[in-house]
Computed example of a mutant assay.
Amino acid sequence: MIHITLGAERHVDPTQDALHRDRVGYSDQMSQLALYDANHGTWKLGERAQGEQYTLMSYGGFVRQAIEIESIDPVVGVPAGDKQEGRSIINGRVLTAGHPVYDMYVHKTSPVQGVRNPVTYVDGPVDQSPCRCGCGGMVAGREFLPGHDQTALHDRVRQIGTVAQFLDWFDVVRGTRPFA
């Protein structure tokens, strides 16, 4: 889960902002839609962000909003060297009471406290999914438990036979034969 720590609401120049916003940050007077509009971009996100399903927005030590991520898109149309270059926009649906992520986090103490970087990542129980190897273990923010990708690969190779037989089979399936 992506976790973003917000600052207090401040006004910005819409002509200088990639999303043409007039404010960013948090205020008690903001509706949930206004909070989303002000803060769903422009963030410096790591590669891990692409595999996340949810974003939490926190202010003052409490989670103020939860978003189900629909897409993460690059900021476009900014000049080279602009501070918004290389940043991303989180597009999604603002969650409400009754959704497990909302109920678990919103209006509760933030799972991340006292960090310098506003963007962090949280492994929460709602983010977990089964390990792709089929072991029954649960993972968050990745597809396999450590080492289980190799176990899954070698289990499949054994189903074909030897490594050489696996390579031959693979080449036939793909329609390629790298060696004569």
Rank of each mutant, 00 (worst) to 15 (best):
D13K: 06
Y36C: 07
D73A: 13
R116V: 14
G114T: 09
Y59D: 10
V94Q: 07
D127A: 11
E85N: 02
P111Q: 02
V112R: 04
A8D: 09
H107E: 03
V24P: 06
R116H: 12
N117S: 15
P111M: 01
H11I: 13
Y121S: 05
T109N: 13
P118H: 03
T176C: 08
L33W: 09
V106G: 00
Y121E: 02
A49I: 02
G175P: 06
T5I: 08
F62T: 06
Y59Q: 11
G77P: 05
E70N: 13
P74G: 01
D82C: 00
G137L: 14
E52D: 13
K44R: 10
G92A: 04
P130D: 07
V139C: 08
A38H: 00
G175I: 08
Q150F: 14
V94E: 05
R142T: 15
M30E: 00
V126I: 07
V106Q: 01
N39K: 04
Q113M: 13
T162S: 13
V94K: 00
E9W: 09
T15M: 09
I90Y: 02
P146D: 12
H20T: 04
P14R: 09
W169I: 12
A18N: 03
T5C: 09
K44I: 03
H107V: 12
I2Q: 04
D22H: 05
G124Y: 03
T42C: 06
R87Y: 02
V112M: 02
T96H: 14
